[in-house]
Design a protein around this nucleic acid. Structure first.
Lengths: 211, 211
DNA sequence: CCCGTAAGGTTTGCATGCAAAATGCCGCAA
DNA sequence: TTGCGGCATTTTGCATGCAAACCTTACGGG
């Protein structure tokens, strides 16, 4: 399946910044880079445009989408609503096995926290959030969350976490796990909202790479 | 802009049921029907696949996506979360002009209700919901809502509204308008949730065209 | 010197062509 | 009659070709 691979390759390149916001995506150059012809590349660009990762200017090709502060605000608002819904649903639907799996992820993340491994912490953090989304038992929601998350991840942040915030985030995660154990979707939902709000404040303080 | 028009033409055909769920979408036939070549059609199909309106089977072409009851449940859950967020945001952000505009739509819809014009009522209903979404001042949210709504609209329902339900829906709309006037996003949000839940129950009772 | 403009090259948008995969059809045998 | 295998046709996936739109650059007029 050549076509899917092209979409994934480009999307990954866009998300982790190998193609920078605002940068042009000339067809020919990427064709030779990927060793394909223009047809599948163009199809991939159309899909990525529908996903919001690139913008297509008629007769002027594709550019990696610029992420304004406003876009980021909007994405965080939507992300919050999706995560809140996921929390609520997960509270109702998560299985014992699901809770156990998240407990494992939680311990891994806590271990990363203990050894001040920020990279590992972020990975674990994301894994837990995705596990909660999966536990919500709604694939449409999961796909949308993934899509919104991917757009957010395109924003690169410049400042490190201020002291104390990491600890707070960990405490919030402890609270999440407790709520999950009690299957309390309402509380889980509100913790997730708070958690995201803090992340949002973080970015507000840090400023992000664009602008 | 040929490409966009093809996407829109196909999407419309899918949403209002001219292309039925599960039906194949052979490239050649649609090329001659639309008077274009296969390239732009294929690009359009990829986009529609990304939007969830068609599914692409490798080497076996495109089919109009089937909407299972489960898909519908999932879409309603997501729709509810998006609408609830919109209600909350609209309460904070709507302008006087925005409220006035919705009051006009509301009166139109009420008039359709009075003359038992179900078609007109549905149109007005949808216009109000979209106006609330617009008033939320979040274009990302608006686009997602539109996308989810489009997928829901592909489900065709078979039974008419039971007596009394229409009246209840109207009362809920009155309550929405009141909440908006008071800029009470929390209440608006919860009314929207209830309203959608009733719509959902409706469909549960009616059964939908698939299956 | 600066601005407008026109020619050249480049890039995009769509059409077409070709090979591989899939579908359907027919005959054959159990 | 029913099930199976092989061939022809259709359909899909990608590459390529061609015309139109765009960008660059260089030239001439003001």
């Amino acid at each position: 399946m050549l076509h899917d691979e092209v979409v994934n390759a480009l999307r990954t390149a866009l998300i982790d910044g190998r193609i920078k916001p605002g940068e042009r995506v000339p067809e020919k150059a990427f064709c030779v880079a990927l060793g394909i012809s223009r047809t599948p590349l163009r199809e991939a660009l159309k899909v990525l445009a529908a996903e919001g990762h690139v913008v297509l200017l008629p007769n002027r090709g594709a550019r990696a989408a610029r992420l304004t502060r406003r876009d980021l605000d909007e994405l965080f608002e939507v992300n919050g609503a999706l995560e809140a819904l996921a929390g609520e649903l997960a509270g109702r639907r998560i299985t014992e096995a699901g809770i156990a799996a998240i407990e494992v992820l939680h311990r891994d993340m806590a271990a990363a926290f203990e050894r001040r491994d920020l990279e590992g912490y972020y990975r674990g953090n994301r894994a837990i959030h995705e596990a909660i989304l999966a536990a919500a038992g709604n694939q449409t929601l999961e796909a949308l969350y993934e899509s919104v998350g991917a757009r957010i991840r395109r924003a690169r942040f410049v400042a490190p976490m201020p002291p104390g915030h990491w600890e707070i985030a960990m405490l919030e995660h402890d609270a999440m796990l407790n709520a999950l154990r009690r299957r309390d979707g309402v509380v889980l939902s509100s913790i997730l909202k708070t958690h995201l709000k803090h992340k949002r404040d973080e970015i507000e303080r840090a400023g992000f790479a664009e602008e």
